[in-house]
Every structure is written in C-alpha cells, then in structure tokens.
Amino acid sequence: MATSLAKFGEVFPILVEDLKSICAEQDNLPDQVLQWFEKTLQYNVVGGKCNRGLSVVDTTQILLGRDLTSAEYFESATLGWMIELLQAMFLVLDDIMDGSTTRRGQPCWYRQPDVGMMAVNDAPMLESAIYLLLKKHFRAHPAYLDLVETFHEVAFQIEVGQTYDMLTERRQNLDEFDQARYDAIVTYKTAYYSFYLPVALALHYTGRGTPGNLQQAKEVLVAMGHYFQVQDDYLDNFADPAVLGKIGTDIPDGKCSWLVVQALKLCTDEQRAVLKTNYGRVAECDTKVCERRVKDLYADMGLDRVYYDEGLRKGVFTAFLEKIYGRKK
C-alpha cells in the first residue's frame, strides 16, 4: 500500500531538528546561521509532491513484501527526504540559471528580497545536509558506503546534465537540437535522480543492491525518466501556470526541449525561420512577443496532437519490462 504524503511529511521536522542539533553541537554554528539554514530548508524542501521521496518508502515495502516496522519506515522515509534535499539543491540553482520567477506556486528562493545571490551558497548547504543525515542515521548500516557513493554519483550526473543543457542553450544553434542531444541531457539531468535513485536507495537499504539488480532497474527507470521529462516539456508550454505551479521558461531560455526537437523534425523552411528568429532570442526581441510567436507555431503545427499520438505510452514500458524481467542471458 502506497504511503501517504501526510505520513511522509511527519518525518521532515524530525530531520530538521537533527540537522540543527548536528550543526549546533558539532560545528558550534551561531544562532543566526542556524535560523537561516532552517529557513532555507523549510522554504525549498517542503511543498512539492515528493514523488521521488515517497518512492523510496514504497519500493522498500515492495522489496520486503510486508508492512514496514516503524524503524524501517523512518529510515526509508529519511532516505526519501534526502532525495528531496538533492532536488531542492538542484532547483535553487536551476531557477537562478534559468532566471525563473516562480516555483511551486511561490517566488523562487533567490527572488526573496532578503535572499538574492545568497541562494548560491544555500544550495550546496542543502546537498551537504544529505551527508550529515546519512552519517547520523546510517553510519552503522552495511550499505552506508553504497548509499554515500550513490548520492555522490547521481549528484554528479545531474551536474553533467545541467552543463550539457546550459552549453546547448548558450550556443543557440538549432542544428544541434536533435533527438540524440535531447536524450543525453534528459538522461543525466532528470532520469537518474528522479527514477533510478529512489529504487537504487531502496535496493541498497534492503540489502538487494547487487550489480544485476541495479543494472536491471536502471534500464527500465531511465526510460521512464525520459518519458517524465517529455511530459514536463509539454506542460512547460501547454499547461496553465496556475495549475503547474511555475511559469514555463523553455522558449525564452532556448532550451533543447522535446517540443522544439519535434518542431524541427516537422517544420517547413518558413517555420524553421520563425523558430530561428524567435526561439531563445531574448536579446533580439521582446521576450513575450518572441515566446508568443513560438507558442503559436507549436499550435499551428499541432504539437499537442503529436504529443498524444506519438509520445511514449504505458505499453512501451510494460513491453520493455517484460523483455528484461527474469532474463537468463
């Protein structure tokens, strides 16, 4: 039975107190710094859907084949909240790099009047909290080193994906916006930490983190992460910002998104000229005007229909899973 967000949420205040105690006792941090750290945690970590964190708890229960004890629930939920901390770190920096204005229905952290570029320092503090909590709660666990290394490896994969994304955005060369580049960016920037990481942590925690199990999980879950990002790119353009909780910025930022890759596959020479003139061209024209022209082009090309007709479907994953599950060679 899937764990509830409310129950999962009860664990976070305990972890905040743990972090405050560690910082006060071990590092003797001044109260002003502790208060700022707590404010950073509360603003950036809570408030999301927590699908990644919840997945650790649910996967642990599935792997064990029974209800979790209170200790197992707390420990698996703690690992889940560590993913939420990693996510928070990434989003704080991503919002700065993208110049975003809102996140989860509220101003981005760096947009707060008393924050600004202090957010650049707050982000790595959020990531460091992961390792403080791992040491406190899992130092004696047999898979402690595997857990630490998994977080380090996935964090680096996110950073690689972000670098590739930013380099592509900076070059503004539509000839480079192809499916192969998009797949690489998505795999590193999103798929590993959003889908593979929760399962990998549960596998390590339950003592099932063998190379074979991890590889099999990776093959399926990275593909699912790819589908998730396709959805995210679609929603960035077509969803109501009030429902989405943020204002999409892929077009003015010149992102190598699924929509622009599809548009470039299908466009006429005239439509390509519209993209070249308006996509990511903030300096050359009014941002809203350029964005509107691209959105209108997407609508004219029927990319919403392409998404529903040609996008990945559930059957892709069930068929793929059937092929690899229980294989002998």
Rank of each mutant, 00 (worst) to 15 (best):
residue 58 D to E: 11
residue 84 E to L: 11
residue 108 C to W: 12
residue 324 I to M: 04
residue 269 D to E: 15
residue 213 N to G: 08
residue 267 C to M: 11
residue 75 E to F: 10
residue 329 K to N: 14
residue 295 K to S: 00
residue 143 A to K: 09
residue 309 D to T: 11
residue 235 L to I: 10
residue 264 L to F: 00
residue 266 L to E: 01
residue 158 I to F: 09
residue 217 A to N: 02
residue 321 L to C: 10
residue 88 A to K: 01
residue 157 Q to Y: 14
residue 83 I to W: 05
residue 189 K to L: 07
residue 326 G to F: 06
residue 260 V to H: 02
residue 311 G to K: 02
residue 55 S to L: 11
residue 245 G to P: 00
residue 293 R to E: 00
residue 258 W to F: 06
residue 58 D to C: 01
residue 4 S to R: 12
residue 304 D to V: 00
residue 3 T to A: 13
residue 75 E to L: 15
residue 6 A to C: 03
residue 242 A to E: 10
residue 87 Q to L: 12
residue 314 K to W: 09
residue 75 E to K: 12
residue 150 T to A: 07
residue 56 V to Y: 12
residue 245 G to M: 02
residue 214 L to H: 08
residue 22 I to P: 02
residue 24 A to C: 06
residue 138 F to W: 07
residue 29 L to N: 03
residue 195 F to V: 01
residue 131 Y to E: 09
residue 173 N to K: 03
residue 216 Q to N: 10
residue 4 S to M: 06
residue 16 V to L: 04
residue 226 H to S: 10
residue 288 K to T: 09
residue 43 Y to W: 07
residue 310 E to S: 12
residue 320 F to I: 00
residue 239 A to C: 07
residue 121 N to P: 04
residue 270 E to I: 01
residue 103 R to G: 12
residue 224 M to F: 09
residue 69 T to N: 08
residue 170 R to A: 06
residue 77 A to Y: 05
residue 136 K to E: 08
residue 202 A to I: 00
residue 294 V to C: 01
residue 308 Y to A: 03
residue 213 N to P: 00
residue 259 L to V: 03
residue 182 Y to W: 11
residue 329 K to H: 13
residue 159 E to A: 10
residue 35 Q to V: 15
residue 228 F to V: 01
residue 302 G to V: 05
residue 238 F to R: 01
residue 170 R to N: 05
residue 193 Y to P: 13
residue 118 M to N: 15
residue 21 S to M: 03
residue 29 L to P: 05
residue 44 N to I: 05
residue 192 Y to C: 00
residue 231 Q to A: 01
residue 2 A to L: 10
residue 108 C to N: 09
residue 293 R to T: 05
residue 137 H to K: 08
residue 232 D to Y: 09
residue 7 K to A: 13
residue 71 A to C: 10
residue 243 V to M: 09
residue 237 N to A: 13
residue 36 W to Q: 15
residue 239 A to M: 03
residue 48 G to H: 06
residue 145 L to E: 15
residue 12 F to C: 05
residue 3 T to S: 14
residue 244 L to M: 11
residue 60 T to M: 10
residue 85 L to N: 07
residue 237 N to F: 05
residue 215 Q to C: 08
residue 208 R to V: 07
residue 88 A to T: 06
residue 328 K to D: 08
residue 200 A to F: 14
residue 292 R to V: 01
residue 14 I to A: 15
residue 225 G to I: 13
residue 134 L to Q: 07
residue 238 F to H: 03
residue 255 K to E: 02
residue 327 R to I: 14
residue 211 P to S: 08
residue 247 I to Q: 08
residue 291 E to G: 01
residue 54 L to V: 10
residue 157 Q to W: 06
residue 51 N to Y: 10
residue 286 D to M: 02
residue 126 L to S: 02
residue 147 L to Y: 06
residue 216 Q to E: 14
residue 183 D to W: 11
residue 312 L to H: 13
residue 113 P to H: 13
residue 37 F to H: 08
residue 29 L to Y: 07
residue 118 M to W: 12
residue 62 I to K: 15
residue 7 K to P: 00
